[in-house]
Design a protein around this nucleic acid. Structure first.
Length: 722
DNA sequence: ACAATAGGGATTTTT
DNA sequence: TCCCTATTGT
């Protein structure tokens, strides 16, 4: 690969960044849609092919697994070879890798487990209960938040002076208890991965210099999102001999509330000298109007590094601003606009509805169902966070490592097998007194238990032991298949009446497939199973079935849309107190972040952007009158096209429409049952998987033979039973 | 052990 | 309003 191939399709600024002097650090201020991933990957390709930098000497850090994966893929395409051994990963993934390799120096066993947010919550809650700390006064969520916040700042309990603040005092107490618990149980939470790997390097100068010498080039993506400990981690790894190359955009910093320090990007220029700053301002995504409007909006923020996006692709259409009467009206406007696009053969996946808070998705969902437009809502529980999947994973964990107390607690009596609280309390007590784990403790106390409890507990112990023996010679996916069956999970969820659609059972089956797909890193210090378990915690998004999503309109929060782009974007709920949110309105710092969020939302749009707001909105059980968002006013009028006229059906039309439809699907319809076969005019034949609600608002989930699985409102769907 | 019921809270969530 | 949790009753 030669230089012109690497620089071939890059603009001046991009090329400059890629071939930047090796003796300088770099800050690439990459605006939205300016090709930052391209610069990052081409920079690496340049170093490897033109500067003979060994791939082992490169460390590339991202925030999300998705970004890391994308970088890997693009790199192996560019370099035309696999880059398996290269250190490309998330902050957490890289930290994890270091801790596994140097677990002894990090004061961890080789089998340490990673806690996800749920596990962490459970532990904190139990610790508080055991120590009589009143949950109503000190909500677990808040304490958990406090602890994570401190860790993100690199702060340990001993560093905190609570003064006279009772909340902080209690939080620190729980923090200490929690730290003790994690230490004695070999547990690491997300924040701890970073903090501990930081300490590891800080306290072991040999290790530190090893990595400093090894990583000649450290590249960081989305630098504006780094928190204090991440910044310190990078700073620690940097040295006289190596160079950092940071890419970021201060205008797209939207995770300040999670500890991201926008100021890190400012500090960079002081802490990492000599440094060269390059601005990528040419945008390849949006039309001129969208960019100018976004630029105008973001100018209202103070203390920016300053950047102004431009494009040579023409002005495009103005931004539509729709004033709706209510959120129903709003969703009707948006969805009928989408319908119009679909009629023009625009693909559904090219349309996105973005909003500030998840609660806003409902109105759109209902309208999309009415129009029979396929959609997908992002957000909510991810695959590995689902209860049934966590249950199964905990069986896997306990089979693999009987000292995993977190797993033990979760599944000892699930599915229920007659092991009550009293028994579990005895197990805990014995374990605490004898310095052993819960599983071992169970084995020890069985003989001292009343017959009934003893039998139940004995059954559980034997179950785990048998599964362990039986899975000895099985591969990962066979192991998973065995466990979801023998544990009784499949049986339990097959009979779960609350899960009419059987999706939990399906998820468990999907877990087998996910295990099958798992590719184990041969160089890893972990067994295949432990590798799978760690990966599941570090990347909880697995298992999702993306086959139909490209036919769907996409609904998500603006936060989730960061890094994505769509030809047609609808930014909904542009109202004061919703966006910017009420909780942010009193603090200029928070308002600025809301404004950046709005900027991120607007710059997702490629061809056409539509903003909408409702005068009256039903929220939290009551109607609220709202003012249009200040952000709308901050966009100069000549980029906007205001639409105030009522679109589509009038209120009366709705009424007549509804009453007309009421007869189509009588309330007392006894034919509607799971498994019933139906025919739909457009989607053809299908089977009812699930339904909810009554009368007019009944929603039915149907698996169509050809059209896939859909939720429909029965009063609109006009179903025929066959 | 589970279902029914009452009460409280309701941005955003990369790992 | 809706959803999640904790409590209560069978």
């Amino acid at each position: 690969m030669n230089l012109s191939e690497i620089l071939g399709d890059l603009n001046d600024k991009q090329s400059q960044s890629v071939i930047l002097d090796n003796n300088k650090n770099a800050l690439i201020l990459a605006g939205a849609g300016s090709g930052k991933t391209r610069v990052l990957t081409h920079r690496i390709a340049y170093l490897v092919t033109q500067n003979s930098v060994n791939t082992d000497s490169i460390l590339a850090v991202t925030f999300t697994n998705k970004a890391a994966l994308e970088m890997r893929e693009r790199l192996s395409l560019l370099l035309r070879r696999p880059i398996r051994s290269m250190w490309v990963g998330t902050f957490h993934g890289i930290s994890h890798r270091m801790l596994r390799t140097h677990h002894i120096e990090a004061n961890l066993s080789s089998q340490f487990q990673i806690l996800d947010a749920q596990d962490q919550f459970r532990i904190i809650k139990r610790l508080m209960k055991e120590n009589q700390i009143d949950e109503t006064k000190y909500p677990v969520k808040k304490i958990q938040w406090f602890i994570n916040q401190q860790k993100d700042e690199g702060v340990r309990p001993k560093d905190i002076d609570a003064g006279y603040n009772y909340f902080v005092k209690q939080s620190v107490k729980v923090f200490e208890l929690y730290e003790g618990h994690c230490a004695s149980n070999d547990l690491i939470d997300f924040a701890e991965l970073l903090l501990r790997s930081y300490d590891l390097l800080k306290l072991n100068s040999d290790l530190l210099s090893h990595y400093q010498e090894r990583f000649q080039h450290i590249l960081v993506d989305e630098f504006q999102d780094t928190n204090t400990i991440q910044y310190k981690w990078i700073k620690l790894l940097s040295s006289k001999q190596n160079r950092v190359f940071c890419v970021g955009d201060d205008d797209q910093s939207i995770y300040g509330w999670r500890g991201a320090k926008i100021d890190n990007i400012h500090k960079l220029e002081k802490d990492f000298t000599p440094i060269q700053t390059i601005r990528l301002e040419q945008n390849y995504r949006s039309t001129g109007n969208i960019l100018s409007a976004s630029n105008a909006l973001i100018t209202n923020n103070k203390s920016r590094l300053g950047k102004s996006l431009w494009t040579d692709s023409g002005d495009g259409e103005k931004i539509d601003v729709y004033e709706a009467r209510t959120e129903i009206d709003e969703s009707d406007y948006v969805v009928s606009s989408i319908q119009t696009l679909l009629n023009d053969n625009i693909m559904a996946r090219n349309c996105a509805i973005l909003y500030r808070s998840n609660a806003q998705s409902r109105a759109f969902e209902e309208r999309l169902i009415k129009y029979n437009i396929p959609y997908i809502i992002y957000g909510g529980l991810r695959f590995f966070e689902r209860a049934e999947i966590k249950d199964a994973m905990c069986y896997l964990r306990l089979i693999e490592n009987s000292s995993d107390n977190v797993a033990f607690e979760r599944i000892v009596n699930f599915p229920t097998r007659g092991i009550g609280n009293a028994t579990i309390e005895k197990i805990r007590e014995f374990a605490a007194n004898n310095g052993t784990n819960l599983f071992q403790s169970s084995v020890s106390i069985i003989s001292s238990l009343p017959t009934r409890a003893a039998n139940s507990l004995d059954g559980f112990v034997k179950l785990i032991e048998n599964m362990r023996d039986a899975s000895q010679n099985l591969n990962l996916s066979e192991k998973v298949a065995l466990l979801i069956k023998d544990s009784g999970l499949i049986y339990h969820f097959s009979n779960d009446k609350t899960d009419k659609a059987g999706s939990k059972k399906e998820n468990l089956e999907e877990l087998i497939a996910t295990a099958k797909r798992y590719i184990h890193d041969e160089e890893s210090d972990l067994s295949e199973t432990l590798g799978f378990i760690s990966q599941a915690t570090l990347d909880s998004s697995g298992g999702d079935d993306n086959t139909n999503t490209n036919k769907c309109v996409q609904l998500m929060t603006i936060h989730s849309a960061k890094g994505l782009e769509f030809p047609y974007v609808f930014l909904a709920g542009m109202e004061e107190d919703l966006f910017p949110s009420r909780q942010s309105k009193d603090e200029p710092r928070l308002i600025d972040e809301e404004r950046r969020l709005c900027y991120v939302g607007m710059t997702r749009a490629m061809k056409k952007l539509t903003l909408s707001y409702a005068i009256k909105r039903f929220l939290h059980g009551q109607s609220i009158y709202a003012y249009p968002s200040r952000f709308i006013d901050e966009i100069p009028q000549h980029y906007k096209n205001s639409i105030k006229q009522k679109f589509g059906l009038s209120e009366n039309d709705y009424k007549s429409n509804n009453s007309k439809n009421q007869n189509i699907f009588p309330e007392s319809d006894s034919q509607l049952s799971v498994g019933a076969n139906v025919k739909h005019a457009k989607f053809g034949y299908g089977t009812v998987l699930n339904f909810e609600g009554k009368g007019d608002s009944t929603r039915v989930q149907i698996k169509f033979k050809k059209a896939g699985t859909k939720w429909l409102i029965s009063s609109y769907a006009n179903l025929e039973f066959v």
